[in-house]
Amino acid sequence: MMRCAVFGAFILATGPAAAETFEFIGNAQSLNSQKQLYEELHQVTGNCSKAGFEPAEHTVSYFKDPGDRRFAFKTLQYGEHPNRPSVEFHQPDFSETLEIRYSKSKQLTIDWQPPSENPRRFQVTFDGRLVVDAGFDQFVRANWQAVIAGESLPFRFLAPTRGDHYGFVLEPAPKEKIDADVVVQIRPTSLVLRFLVDPIILGYNRKGALTHYRGLTNIRADRETNHTAHIRYRVIQYPGCELTL
């Protein structure tokens, strides 16, 4: 009987780690008028390991005002490659949905239902440099020492509604528009895209938590355009381990 009790205690001690939660809220304001646009509630569940916090699932709920109905939501599933989560996004007010799944090891499938248009499907091949959606946040933290050292990091970024990915670089940015401990920007490397796509500016605190996002969002202003916003984040709950190493 004693041997069974000891064995049971061993199983409990070496079983799956308890889930950890990382929660934060973002308030999005218009770049031009400073008007409050919406609020984002983020909840990331995952586990702590020797590598720090490892995200598993990330849910985002969008509200026009605190306590108002949820007008959009997104779920991300992080697997073996946190830079490339699967994505499910719904914006019911515009009858828009977007799903990103990995059909093969080096191929993903995008199913997009645009507002008032026929659905579209893309099959996209990729390599290990690809970053998808909020995977940019994991990309920053996975390269934290290089980021705070001021290095430039090239990668490929998925443009799901175009069914393709493009060359981008993560690099230091001036702190003129964002007051954060660490300020970086994501900008396209193609000269043509630089004229069409403004850089996304990101701010982080010393713990590696996102504090600012300034740029194009996935939330629609109308059927033709998305909001460009400055989103300020505050952490509600940190996980029980470091976000970065």
Rank of each mutant, 00 (worst) to 15 (best):
F136C: 01
T97Q: 10
E99M: 11
I110V: 15
S105I: 10
V140A: 05
E117P: 01
Q138G: 01
T125Q: 07
D133A: 13
F94M: 10
P119R: 09
A134W: 03
A159P: 00
R101H: 12
F122V: 09
F136V: 11
H90S: 06
S103V: 15
I148Q: 02
T161K: 12
E99V: 13
P115Y: 14
S152R: 14
Q91H: 09
R156W: 02
R121L: 04
L108N: 03
E117F: 08
Q138T: 14
E151R: 14
P119E: 04
G128C: 06
D127K: 13
Q123W: 05
W112N: 08
V124A: 06
N143G: 00
V147L: 00
D133T: 10
T97A: 11
Q107M: 13
V147A: 00
Q123R: 10
Y102E: 13
S152K: 15
W144A: 04
L98I: 12
F122E: 04
A134E: 07
Q145E: 11
L98N: 05
Q145V: 06
P114T: 11
E117R: 13
G128F: 01
F155C: 09
P92G: 05
T97D: 12
H90K: 02
A142W: 00
D133C: 07
V140E: 01
E99A: 15
W112A: 09
L153F: 03
F157V: 03
V131A: 09
L98W: 05
L130T: 03
H90L: 02
F155W: 00
A159M: 10
G128K: 12
W144T: 03
V147H: 00
F126I: 08
D111G: 06
E117I: 05
A142M: 13
F139G: 05
P115E: 14
R129M: 07
I100T: 08
V131R: 03
I110G: 06
T161R: 12
S95Y: 10
S105F: 13
A146E: 06
A142Y: 00
A142G: 07
Q113L: 12
R101W: 03
D127G: 15
F155A: 13
P92D: 04
E151Y: 06
